[in-house]
């Protein structure tokens, strides 16, 4: 890799100051270091700012850390149960393993902990952070290849579109057919979570669709954040009592989903409300349709409803030469995820 300066930030302010114009934040490093080793990050960052110490109490430089943000490695229950605004706030540095194992989250959002448990392997889950997972870059094999220049790396066309595209998108707003593959993104979108981001001096709140919108049309983008934007936490409202996640991979464990589906909502007397269904690995963003979510409002949660929703969600799919199988696969997973809302376990 190219050489860079390495620095540890103790507060968000310090991290933002250190990262400057050409730096990157380093969390678990699983994605970033792999990209740097393959010379995929251009321009090459001049500094890596370790953010794993941000907000940690007792840090020599940071003191109490960034009190406003809460601990970046904490999972906090916000507002009393049953009250307006009840939510869980997940710090950016929480590991995927911590999410998967958290008992309160398992009860509140079974789909979330399930999705976390399906990320990579035990080793990866132990190191991967929530922010790093949400902001991970494309896994497209053209993008990841050190010796080819695809559109995502400034080339003039998407090589997958007419090439090897079995793992690629059914939907895209632009010409790049990479897919968003973060498990966490899918289920957090279904749960209508909000991301809190420090942008310079401002603190902005982004919906999950906003967090990814840019990647829908812009081939160069992996998400909507600039390298200087600092994601501090994700807030998940408890409004939806049921959530579920289903993915299918070529292998049972330690494999990327071919397609994943997250669903969330409320079920009362067999009737579905506030439902949101999200597909993963079919578009450059978590793929959701308001039309489908609206359709589900007040519908009985049964096979017929699930089938109709699945068909509706896949309606505009534009399969490439090798990924047509994702259509029936996605339909099957939408049905399974939705029907799983019948159970509290997700």
């Amino acid at each position: 890799m190219h050489s860079f300066t390495y620095s540890t930030a103790r507060s968000v302010d310090e991290a933002i100051a250190l990262v400057g114009d050409k730096g990157r934040y380093l969390a678990g490093g699983i994605d970033l270091l792999a990209e740097l080793k393959d010379y995929l990050v251009t321009p090459a960052p001049d500094i890596l700012v370790n953010v794993k110490r941000v907000g940690q109490p007792g840090g020599p430089a940071g003191g109490a850390g960034d009190a406003k943000m809460g601990l970046l490695n904490g999972i906090v229950h916000v507002a009393p149960a049953g009250k307006e605004g009840e939510a869980y706030k997940l710090g950016a540095n929480v590991t995927i393993a911590e999410v998967a194992a958290n008992a309160a989250l398992k009860k509140a959002f079974p789909g979330l902990t399930h999705a976390a448990g399906e990320v990579g392997s035990t080793q990866i889950r132990n190191v991967a952070t929530l922010a790093g997972n949400l902001l991970q870059h494309s896994r497209c094999w053209y993008y990841r290849h050190p010796d080819v220049t695809c559109q995502k790396k400034g080339g003039d066309k998407c090589l997958a579109r007419d090439g090897e595209n079995r793992y690629h998108a059914l939907f895209t707003g632009g010409s790049c057919v990479t897919v968003a593959a973060s498990n966490m993104a899918m289920v957090l979108t279904a749960l209508d979570a909000k991301a809190t981001v420090r942008r310079g001096k401002e603190t902005v709140t982004l919906s999950m669709p906003d967090l990814y919108a840019k990647a829908w049309t812009d081939a160069a983008a992996h998400h909507s954040l600039a390298p200087q934007d600092f994601l501090t936490s994700v807030t998940v409202p408890t409004l939806r009592k049921r959530s579920a996640y289903r993915q299918q991979s070529e292998r049972k464990e330690f494999d990327w989903a071919l397609v994943s589906c997250a669903a969330a909502g409320n079920v009362n007397g067999g009737v579905l409300t506030d439902a949101r269904v999200v597909l993963g690995c079919v578009a450059p963003i978590p793929y959701m349709s308001l039309e489908v979510n609206n359709f589900l409002q007040g519908k009985p949660l049964n096979e017929a409803t699930a089938t109709a929703a699945a068909d509706m969600l896949l309606k505009g799919a534009r399969p490439l030469s090798q990924n047509g199988y994702k259509v029936p696969l996605a339909q099957a997973l939408v049905k399974r995820a939705l029907l799983a809302l019948n159970e509290t376990a997700g």
Partner: peptide, 21 residues
């Protein structure tokens, strides 16, 4: 890849080998 002639799945996340699970 037919267009560039490279081996696309050069790492174990896409050159898939049966694992224990």
């Amino acid at each position: 890849d037919k267009a560039t002639g490279v081996v696309l799945n050069h790492s174990f996340d896409t050159y898939k080998i049966t694992n224990l699970a």
